[in-house]
Design a protein around this nucleic acid. Sequence first.
DNA 1: TCACTTTATTAGTCTTGACTAATTATATTT
DNA 2: AAATATAATTAGTCAAGACTAATAAAGTGA
Lengths: 217, 217
Amino acid sequence: MHSLSEENYLKAIYSQAKEGAHKITPTSIAEELRNNPASVIDMLKKLGDKKLLNYDKVKGARLTEKGTKIAIEIVRKHRLWEVFLLEKLGYSWGEVHDIAEQLEHIHYEDLTDRLDKFLGYPNYDPHGDPIPDKNGKIPATKWQALAEVEIGKKVKVMNVDDNSPDFLKYLDKQEIGLNSILTIKEIQNFDKSLLVELKGKKEIYLSPEASRKIFVE
Amino acid sequence: MHSLSEENYLKAIYSQAKEGAHKITPTSIAEELRNNPASVIDMLKKLGDKKLLNYDKVKGARLTEKGTKIAIEIVRKHRLWEVFLLEKLGYSWGEVHDIAEQLEHIHYEDLTDRLDKFLGYPNYDPHGDPIPDKNGKIPATKWQALAEVEIGKKVKVMNVDDNSPDFLKYLDKQEIGLNSILTIKEIQNFDKSLLVELKGKKEIYLSPEASRKIFVE
DNA sequence: TCACTTTATTAGTCTTGACTAATTATATTT
DNA sequence: AAATATAATTAGTCAAGACTAATAAAGTGA
Ligand SMILES: [Mn+2]
Ligand SMILES: [Mn+2]
Ligand SMILES: [Mn+2]
Ligand SMILES: [Mn+2]
C-alpha cells in the first residue's frame, strides 16, 4: 500500500486534473496541500519512480493509469465515508469532509465495498459529488454554476464546489442545501450579486463568489 | 493530539497493566509491538517527558493518570469500531481487530460518542471485551477460564482472550462463539485436553491452550 | 563467587516527508 | 533587450520513529 502522504498527493493531482487544470505544477500542488514546492518536487520524483505519474516542467504532473486508479479509490472512500458520517452519525455536511480526510486512508480488503453496500450504494456524497463505483466509473454530471443561470429560471441545487466548513455554514445559515429549489429574481449590475428566491421561504442575496460555487440543474 | 505511534505504545502498556503484568519492560513492550527494545526506550523517554508515563528500570513503565485516560479512549474507540465492523459491515470476529487497529487512531470531536450512540451503546466488543463508557468507566468482569471449570459444569462463553484471526478461525470451525453453551464432559489426564459438549450440536476436544483462552461464566 | 545469559542502554544510521535558503529558469514589464 | 518578478530546482537541515551494533547491568546456575 501507499503512505498517507503519497495518497494525499495523488488525490490532489487527480482533483486538479478533474477540475480541468491545463497544467499541474509544483506550486499549485503545494498550495492545495498547504506545503511548499520543494517538498512537492521531492514527492513528484518519488511517485514518478513508482510509475504513478509523469512529471516534466513543460507538461506538469500527470497521473498514469495506475496513479489514477489509486486516486479514484481514495476519492471513492472519502465520499462514502462522508455519506456514512452524515447519514449514520448525524454530522453536518460542513463537518464530514475533515473526518473523511482521515478515514479515506484506512485500508482493508473489501472495506470500501462493504461500506458502499451498507450505505445502499449511494451515487452522490453530501456535497453532491459523484461517488465512483467499484470499478472506478464515475457518473458524468453536467451541472451549471448558479452564476451562469439566466434570470427568471428555476433551478435545483445539485452540488457545491467548496467543502470548507466556513462556506457550508454560510449556506446553512441561508438555508440552502442540496436539492434546494431556487429562482433567480435579479442580477445586480454593479457586482453580479444574485437575488434568488428560496422556494416557499424567502428571498436572499448571494455573492458572486458564492454563486460560482453552487451548481444547479 | 498524539501520534499514531505514541498511541500504540500507550495502548500496549495499558493492556499489559490490565493483564496484571507486575513489571512492564522495554522487552515486553517490544514484543507486543513487534519492534525492538532500543526503539521502545526512546519512546519511553518521550512519553515520560510528556508526563504520560513514568519509567524506571526497577518498576518498569507505568502510565500516569493522563496516559491511562488516553489509552482508555483508544481502547474505547477500538472496541466500538469492532462492533461497527461486525454488526454493520458484516465482518467476522476474526477480521475486525486488524481494521479497528487503524480506525482507533481517527480523531474528531464527538466521533466516538456518536459512534457509540449509533451502535446503541454496546457494553462488549465482538470478543467479549468490555467497552469503556464516555467517562472511561469499564464494567468489571469476573469470568473464569474454561480450563478452570470443573467437570460436569455447564457454562456460557463470555470472552476470548486472543483476537488473532488464526485462533478465531479455529473457534469458528469448531462452531464456538460468544454465548455458546458448553458442558465439560471429560478432562484428559495426560494433557488436560477438554472434551466439551457444544449444546445440542456435538462433542469436541479442546486443547489446553485453547481452553485457557476461552472465558466463561 | 564466577562464568554465562539475558536485559537495558547508548551511540550511530536510516528513511520519510517536511522545511529554508540559495540558485537557476521562465515570464513579464518597461 | 534589460530589468524584474515569479516559478522550479537543488542543497542542506530537521524531527519522528524505526534499526543495528556495541556496551553496561542484572540475573542465574554451577
Ligand atoms: Mn487525506
Ligand atoms: Mn465531499
Ligand atoms: Mn493501532
Ligand atoms: Mn476486541
